[in-house]
Design a protein around this nucleic acid. Structure first.
Lengths: 413, 413
DNA sequence: AGACTTTTTTCGGGTCTCGAAAAAATACTG
DNA sequence: CAGTATTTTTTCGAGACCCGAAAAAAGTCT
């Protein structure tokens, strides 16, 4: 059961509310914060004075964003970029990216390099990651920024506590406790998140009007991934990190999936599945590994040029996605969907079949109300999602607590 | 965004915590409540004194449940049954049941009658319901109990606000605003809930050890329904009341479902589907309506007696349920499942096929960890779930607020 | 009967939020 | 250009709440 509330929890919550209001609104005045949070002006005044003296917020002078009105002008508050920083990293098939982002959400340093994750050893994989983060943190451009949180996004499944990568398609190695490893190396609290979940987080920040309380982000690439936000919160499974949309069953005993089972949605709609069907290979043939983005672009072009096996392969893929979404919508009701990644570039080929399939399902009742959107490039989205997630942790778990409480904690410890 | 916390919100939350602790534990002492909630003894003392003086809690003397230990004996607190009451009603195919339950959760009056919901008019349906509740509330046995909440459970879909029955298999009529109707009639706040959701709520109370944070209740009867609890909370869709497990797609373009679409799980595992297959009718033939429980019992007996179309029908049903669960588990990870209703009586026929199918799916990775359980009789479960849901509302929204706050509210109004 | 143990209440202190009033900062007005 | 109006922000006193320590209560044990 949830715990009772102490008196200091109240202050912590309200500090978190104020910080969150500033992060969302950008440069709100105290009055705007008061009306956004429902707290009184005096409380906002007291809390923001604390936060400013602790260097978390800052008064932004001379911004004059509003037209000069009668009365005392509002003083805009903003996040102090130098209050801290977060480290984000994304490990995907054959690519490693990382960045340091300041407290206001602006990237300070970034690095990106190719890495054949599928073939290197477990130790090398970890060593490469640690080395890149080490380079970033020791670079002079970081300046006096203190990293307060690391978020690592990986294709695949992590445990519910977001500490261990349980399984990933990008490497044969399993159960790598990245969070423990990085915490030991850098002494910074760390979580390991699913890449598609981070995409969903980023979409929420990029377009809050469209992606507010309920929506779905689907990654179409070699495999199929999903990030799901329900009632404003990231949906995670009971044991692991996220919903494996790609491994819902489309056809019992159907096509061979990369996961070794049969009939998964991915076995029809993953890049390898489309490629396999377009080349008239058996549905039961072993999934190919080295299909590049260029191959898929060429394949899509051939499909657009006219009927044939290629077109048919996209039809099969769209149908599988559509029925999968139909089953998902039966469970959660329809919601806006964003298709992200290489496959989104061929969305024109998929969409009609997706819509036709959804219309055959219970979830398709309000079929026309279902809005689709595409985002071609997934990496920036994932990085941004990691940053927002890491910053949310800093906001709520570190800065909302307050310096006095921290000092008191130190004395006790 | 969630609102900031006022000072009195704190007290309200902590009052709710205390009430919840008593409801869960039955007869806890103040000390037990303190350790359960994490609040200090002085706070518990103050809050429970308030609650007792308001007639919500009572000291239970002479219970002596614990063996006489050294020291001052604990004073057991309990819910005062006369603090209030709730009204619950269940409308299912050809049956209407209702009850008044006192504040401690004990039914005071119950009534049950057959009603051919499928054929009567919309007005008659509402009139029958109102009449039954009217009889219950005016009966002398109710005594001075004041009903504070009505919860109505119906097979089918209600809106997210739980006020309107959008669609139900038990009646051709749609969009019946039961909550508004009953509130106008009785002036008691009302919600309309999905029957399977209420089953899940009840299971949580009946066996908290097994059904704690994550579990699934599946109703096997004419149709297939589901109630889902995730992270300790009832899962509801974004627009409607619950997950329609029965209308996930098992076979694209497959057997004809009662909902008019093809290939739903229900079209293979609902009573009508099993009956249809057992009688070697076409999968595309119109679902029969009047299949009684006796028919299904007889059918199950024939299936047990040896191979044949009946056995095969259960195999098909079990396979559909298994693949459906596999897809569901892919999304939410495996969780304990309770099968409820008439179909649960034939669970021995279904289980091997369910397990075989699940093992073919990604969700079946930990197939042996998935525990199944059966509850034959759904009606008592649904009634109990309604009662607990209604009482939870009274606890949190009425009694946790406190009399002073209520009085103040009245003055303002 | 007195010592001991455990539960519950009481009391004083500290912290938090709120409303009202004051102070601050600027635009408008004649 | 000085005074007034307006809006934002801060200050101040009051009230509510929770906590820890101490006291009171209500038994058992010796």
């Amino acid at each position: 059961m949830s715990a009772g509330m102490r008196h200091d929890d109240l202050r912590r919550r309200n500090r978190a509310m104020v910080i969150a209001a500033v992060r969302r609104a950008g440069q709100p005045s105290r009055t705007e914060i008061a009306s956004a949070t429902g707290l009184s002006h005096s409380t906002i005044s007291a809390i923001s004075a604390d936060l400013i003296s602790e260097g978390i917020l800052a008064e932004t002078k001379g911004s004059e964003h509003a037209t000069a009105r009668r009365g005392r002008p509002q003083v805009a508050l903003s996040l102090n970029p130098k209050a801290g920083a977060v480290i984000v990293a994304v490990l995907s098939l054959s690519d490693l990216s990382a960045a340091i982002v300041d407290y206001s959400g602006v990237p300070v340093v970034e690095e990106n390099r190719r890495l054949s994750t599928a073939t290197i050893s477990r130790d090398e994989l970890v060593a490469e990651l640690v080395a890149m983060l080490r380079r970033l943190t020791t670079g002079r451009s970081t300046g006096p920024l203190k990293p307060l949180r690391i978020v690592l996004a990986i294709q695949g499944i992590s445990d519910a506590a977001a500490r261990v990568m349980l399984w990933s398609p990008i490497t044969p190695h399993r159960d790598i406790p990245f969070a423990d490893m990085l915490e030991r190396e850098f002494a910074i609290p760390t979580t390991v998140e699913n890449d598609c979940n981070m995409m969903a987080v980023a979409l929420r920040w990029r377009d809050p009007a469209r992606y507010r309380d309920n929506f779905i982000a689907i990654l179409l690439s070699h495999g199929i991934g999903m990030g799901l936000v329900l009632k404003g919160e990231l949906f995670t499974g009971t044991r692991s990190s996220g919903g494996e949309f790609g491994h819902m069953i489309h056809q019992p005993s159907g096509a061979l999936c990369r996961c070794g089972r049969r009939g998964c949605v991915e076995a029809y709609a993953g890049d390898y599945a489309i490629w396999r069907n377009a080349h008239r290979k058996s549905e039961y043939s072993t999934p190919e590994d080295g299909i590049g983005n260029a191959d898929m672009v060429a394949l899509a072009a051939r499909a657009r040029s006219g009927e044939g096996a290629e077109r048919e392969a996209y039809r099969t893929a769209g149908t599988a996605i559509g029925y999968g979404l139909g089953s998902l919508f039966a469970l959660i009701d329809p919601a806006p969907v964003a298709f992200v990644g290489g496959g989104a570039a061929a969305f024109d080929l998929l969409e009609p079949y997706i819509r036709t399939a959804i219309a055959q399902t219970a979830g398709g009742q309000h079929s026309d109300a279902i809005s689709f959107d595409t985002v071609a490039d997934e990496l920036p989205l994932i990085l941004q999602g990691c940053a927002m997630r890491a910053l949310a942790f800093v906001d709520q778990e570190i800065f909302a607590v307050g310096l006095e409480a921290l000092d008191a904690g130190k004395e006790v410890a």
